[in-house]
Design a binder for these strands. Structure first.
Length: 833
RNA sequence: GCCGGAGUGGCGGAAUUGGUAGACGCAAGGGACUUAAAAUCCCUCGCCUCCAUAAGGGGCGUGCCGGUUCGAUUCCGGCCUCCGGCACCA
């Protein structure tokens, strides 16, 4: 063993050892409980960044810990390899996306290997290879058969920078999730996945995902956006068509004074036909339609409307209700039309004020203080219904049920649930993605590629001009095909799939990565799935994490898996920030992992990123903090080295009867077992790696202090040596998930065969975690005034007596009468005066 | 506006879920070693204050204001601030 800690020497050595001995290879083993540990796979952008270091360090600690705890740990890695940067590189640097991606993967794989991560690389998956993406196409065909994949003309989000369509989930605050460019709306014929078919199950499943952070579940619930209400049919005066609206507040039905319909509503032209208002109304509609949807739906947008001249008939009162076109009503949600109750809806209130429409109070508050004219809408669902016919006097909640039932009985309405969630638009007008396996035949129309013709591979020779439009449409050999049905001429779909399709099922592919008969082998998928611990960034709360849940349910319904949910437990790690901001090239606050590992070694990089903050919080980078982590490893190294130099023999150790050992030796033992307990519980209960590492540092500090003391003599020397050997062995074992390379070397130096990963996790002796003596605090009226030490097991009465007997305590009491004495065993005595 | 989460030293963060607030690390200050520096090791380190040669002592302190309790960073009520999500969703 070298006397100085030299990560540059030992890290490559152990990485070679692990590789040569296939230490991380995993095989199915029904005899042991399985544990599937997975970190979100990276996009091969070129080089890893500190965010990668952090998430993979977290995952690796969990994987190594679980393995030492006896689990058959599945810990794979792969590449989310399709995506825009590769194509942009092709345009800018004239390098083919496939080549660019492959080179990046090779480089980044090397970087990850330098971190000493315990991946089974034999199961590596790359989504841009045909043996992977053919199964995306296969899933597409299966979904097409079941009506879960369909094509429609729709207003879609378009990112001008990326020159492609985006799903709703990929638009953040009106901007592209990738490049932050403002998104515009376009009408295009696009492919969609019918995720809305699973809206209810996706929502209900949230309540069973007990291993997920609450905030992620809340975000998903908000995104799905369920609301219960009633669909009510209003007949239209002088017309056969009815106007159907959706409301969550049927209790306010008697307060309806007008109707608002979306400008795009199909009934609008019918209502306008032959009316004098027609021309002006059409002009208004055109103006609103021209507005971008993100602008139009902003809260700050002025409410505007136009009267159609038509009237609806109130289903209960038979009153005539004017029908207005309103800019704030969205065709995509509910029925595209709403009943307006200005007294109890703030938007309707403002609209009514502006256009001088009547405002009718139908719910009086509890205090009975609402008087007309109202100054604002009363929107609370509390109080009493008034002016509501037979329903007057009811509470709003009760009225909602009764009015809904009454409407239903008379065939005027029905209970209805609406979701905010929209279908997932998956068409992308770019090259570097999975070709959508569809043909367009002049005679047969839309024809799916037969399964036997999969994969539809990407043509290699295409021009990357950056002019917009899919490069696939520039490849005649790709484009022009024969229709499999009629053998006539047909054209291929030139759009590719959203790359989020690739990542929606990759965790299944790892379970049988080379399977050729299907996307996965149900036998192995059922053995490994679900992922027991998933780790990744919070930014995927409603992107990848929602899509993967959806795909899992589809895969289940295809009969390929029995599980309903892909990820049993989810850990969302925080960002790595420096100088108060997320690391980015533009801010110039990047720390390069290569440089860090070169300087301090992977173990230090891992240790620091685990020590500086709890995993779910943001991590403030500190160069000095990194040095602190390095110093700690150095100190542990030196202590083990000195131990091996001072007459240590590997066989020095247990069993020894420590109960008869000196207090000093017993203290080492106690510290050892308490540290095992603390580190184990910190990792197991909420992944508190920061405090686990702190406990290891405390352990080291205590051992170091002991070593600095006088050399023990005679019998005591033997016991002391045994306790120290045990302590160091456990210290190294406990350290091994965090700093695996250093731990392997130290473990070897202590006379054990590698790998330390195959060594069981240390267990603690409950007898030895008890303190022998404790410091007892004496409080007077809740303030600490004195302390004394006492045997740990001392009862209440002796504790009280000892506290009161102490002259210092007495001097605080000053002879005043004692009202009460509270004794907490092993902790404190509080004297109340 | 609605829904989550968080406010603790100079900094990152601890605190057995009602029982000594500030573990551990960083930074800072002092010292040892050294020709010197680096490295390493030792000591001090919440704020204010008293006695003072020193040992030691006192008050305040976990965003703010109240409450419950012998005792509150922890529980309850009311505010303030920050972060994240959703938002003309009917």
């Amino acid at each position: 063993m070298e006397s100085v800690y030299q990560p540059k020497e030992i890290e490559p050595r152990w990485q070679a050892y692990w590789r040569d001995h296939r230490t991380f290879k995993v095989i199915e083993d029904p005899a042991r409980p399985k544990f599937y540990c997975l970190e979100m796979f990276p996009y091969p952008s070129g080089r890893i960044h500190m965010g990668h270091v952090r998430v993979y360090a977290i995952g690796d600690v969990i994987a190594r810990f679980k393995r030492m705890r006896g689990f058959n740990v599945f810990h794979p890695m792969g590449w989310d390899a399709f995506g825009l940067p590769a194509e942009n590189a092709a345009i800018q640097k004239k390098v083919h996306p496939a080549k660019w991606t492959a080179e990046n993967i090779d480089y980044m794989r090397g970087q990850l290997q330098k971190m000493g991560l315990s991946y089974d690389w034999e199961r590596e998956v790359t989504t841009s290879l045909p043996d992977y993406y053919r199964w995306n196409q296969w899933f597409f065909l299966k979904m097409f058969e079941r009506g879960l994949a369909y094509r429609k003309m729709a207003s879609v989000n378009w990112c001008p920078q990326c020159a492609t369509v985006l799903a709703n989930e990929q638009v953040i605050d009106g901007r592209c999730w990738r490049c932050d460019t403002e998104v515009i709306q376009k009408n295009l014929e696009q492919w969609f996945f019918r995720i809305t078919s699973y809206a209810e199950e996706l929502l209900a499943g949230c309540d069973r995902l007990t291993g997920w952070p609450q905030r992620v579940l809340t975000m998903q619930k908000n995104w799905i956006g369920k609301s219960r209400g009633v669909e009510v049919r209003f007949s239209v005066e002088g017309r056969p068509e009815a106007l159907t609206i959706f409301t969550t507040r049927p209790d306010t039905l008697y307060g309806v004074t007008f109707m608002s319909v979306a400008p795009e509503h199909p009934i609008v032209p019918l209502l306008l036909s032959g009316r004098s208002e027609k021309e002006a109304a059409l002009a208004f509609i055109e103006r609103v339609k021209k507005q971008d949807k993100t602008v139009r739906t902003a809260v700050s947008q002025e409410k505007e409307g136009f009267f159609t001249g038509a009237h609806a008939i109130h289903p209960l009162t038979k009153e005539r209700i004017p029908i207005w076109i309103a800019n704030f009503v969205l065709m995509e949600y509910g029925a595209g039309a709403v009943m307006a109750v200005p007294a109890h809806d703030q938007r309707d209130f403002e609209f009514a004020k502006k256009y001088r429409l009547p405002i009718r109070l139908v719910i009086q508050n509890r205090e009975g203080t609402l008087i007309e004219p109202l100054t604002a809408a009363y929107t609370d669902e509390e109080g009493t219904l008034v002016h509501s016919g037979p329903f007057s006097g009811l509470g709003p909640k009760e009225a909602q049920e009764k009015i809904a039932r009454s409407l239903e009985e008379e065939g005027l309405g029905k209970n209805q649930v609406h979701y905010r969630l929209r279908d997932w638009g998956i068409s992308r007008q770019r090259y570097w993605g999975t070709p959508i396996p569809i043909l367009y035949c002049d005679r047969c129309g839309v024809v799916p590629v037969p399964e036997s013709d999969l994969p539809v591979t990407l043509p290699e020779e295409v021009p990357f001009t950056g002019k917009g439009g899919s490069p696939l449409s520039e490849s005649p050999s790709f484009l022009n095909v024969v229709c499999p049905k009629c053998k006539g001429p047909a054209r291929r779909e030139t759009d590719t799939m959203d790359t989020f399709v690739d990542s929606s099922w990759y965790f299944f592919r790892y379970t049988s990565p080379r399977e050729t008969a299907g996307p996965l082998d149900p036998k192995w998928a059922d053995y490994w799935a679900p992922v027991d611990q998933y780790i990744g960034g919070i930014e995927h709360a409603v992107l990848h994490l929602l899509y993967a849940r959806f795909f899992t349910k589809v895969i289940r319904d295809l009969g390929l898996t029995k599980i309903d949910e892909p990820f049993a437990n989810l850990l969302t790690q925080g960002m790595v920030i420096k100088d108060g901001a997320k690391m980015s090239k533009s801010k110039g606050n990047i720390v390069d992992p290569d440089h860090l590992i070169e300087t301090y070694g992977a173990d230090t990089a891992r240790l620091f990123s685990l020590f500086a903050a709890p995993p779910e919080k943001d991590l403030e980078w500190s160069d000095e903090g990194v040095q602190g982590a390095f110093r700690f490893l150095q100190r542990v190294w030196r202590m083990v080295y000195e131990h091996t130099q001072s007459g240590f023999r590997p066989e020095t150790g247990l069993p020894v009867d420590f109960s008869k050992a000196s207090p000093r030796t017993r203290e080492i033992r106690r510290m050892t077992h308490r540290t095992i307990q603390k580190v184990t519980e910190d990792i197991e209960q909420g992944f508190q790696f920061n405090t686990a590492i702190a406990a290891l540092m405390e352990f080291y500090n205590a051992l170091s202090k002991d070593q600095a003391g006088p050399k023990p003599e005679g019998e005591e020397a033997k016991d002391h040596a045994a306790a120290t050997a045990e302590a160091l062995g456990h210290l190294v074992s406990l350290l091994s998930p965090f700093a695996p390379h250093a731990a392997e070397s130290l473990w070897e130096a202590l006379g054990h065969p590698p790998p330390i990963l195959d060594r069981p996790w240390p267990s603690f002796d409950p007898e030895w975690i008890q303190e022998e003596t404790v410091e007892v605090v004496v409080q007077i009226n809740g303030k600490v005034r004195n302390k004394f030490s006492a045997p740990a097991g001392l009862g209440e009465d002796p504790l009280r007596e000892r506290a009161l007997a102490d002259p210092k305590t007495q001097s605080w009491i000053q002879g005043r009468p004692i009202k009460k004495v509270i004794v907490v065993k092993g902790r404190l005595v509080n004297i109340v005066l």
